[in-house]
């Protein structure tokens, strides 16, 4: 792979023209699926992802229930037509299973689970089109779907990844950067205190690189949080506006 490695940074700009700490454009729309208790759709660069929340409802099978709190079941999958490459296999593979697990763990921390003993809350994340960073975008949009479902939470988490290209730390890797970068570090953050809810890393970085990555993620968080909040408020403000 080394031999074919494309040049990812030319004259201080990335392949898609972004600066090092620049996010791709993000758009979120809440409440777009009728059957779900809460739902949201995100376009994050070329990623297109749907999230839907069902519950709290009786935990099934019964032996999975926790008599003291709700259990969180996340399911992340990618559509077979979601990439620019060949037709994918549908259904969860090992990668998707791992992403589902770490996504559940993010929301286990954030949802006030003790209010709903014996129940489950299902979070479905469906990647319709992928272009790198789908797990982070998935967590960001699932957050909105959960709030739209009226589920009580301590915070509205967001996620984004940082990475390393050569010696340069960059924010929000797209697909081609992700394929050839020297490190990828997806993080999910609780914006009220900056605590890290999800952290994964592969590649090679220094301790300083990690600090830089966290600062980049935190700074981008202000933008992402605002987009999340606006998406949640928009449907209501639209109706208020109509009758003002």
């Amino acid at each position: 792979m080394e031999g074919n490695k494309p040049q990812l940074i030319i004259d201080g700009k990335r392949t898609d023209g972004r600066g090092f700490d620049e996010l791709r454009p993000i758009k979120i729309e809440a409440n777009i699926l009728k059957n779900a208790n809460g739902s949201a759709y995100i376009e994050w660069g070329n990623n297109k992802i749907l999230a839907a929340v069902y519950g709290p409802k009786e935990a099934l099978p019964k032996h999975t229930a926790d008599p003291t709190m709700a259990i969180i079941k996340s399911r992340y999958t990618m559509a077979p037509f979601s990439s620019l490459e060949e037709h994918g296999r549908s259904g969860p593979n090992r990668r998707a299973t791992e992403i589902s697990k770490v996504t559940s763990e993010v929301f286990e921390n954030i949802i006030m689970r003790e209010m709903f003993p014996g129940t489950e809350i299902d979070i479905f994340i469906e990647v319709l089109q992928s272009d790198g960073g789908t797990r982070a975008a998935g967590i960001t949009v699932a957050s909105v779907a959960l709030a739209a479902a009226g589920i009580p939470m301590y915070d509205l988490p967001y996620a984004v990844s940082a990475g390393k290209i050569g010696d340069q730390m960059v924010l929000d890797l797209n697909k081609i950067e992700d394929n050839y970068s020297d490190a990828d570090i997806p993080m999910a953050i609780s914006p009220r205190n900056g605590d890290i809810l999800l952290l994964q890393m592969d590649g090679s970085i220094t301790k300083e690189d990690f600090s830089t990555a966290y600062s980049m993620v935190k700074k981008a968080g202000a933008t992402i949080s605002k987009i999340q909040k606006d998406a949640l408020k928009a449907p209501y403000e639209k109706i208020i506006e109509k009758y003002r």
């Binding site: 699926l33 059957n35 037509f81 469906e126 319709l128």
Partner: peptide, 11 residues
């Protein structure tokens, strides 16, 4: 030619 039909909301 692979056609995948994804049902997103059932009614």
């Amino acid at each position: 030619v692979f056609i995948d039909i994804y049902v997103l909301n059932y009614d």
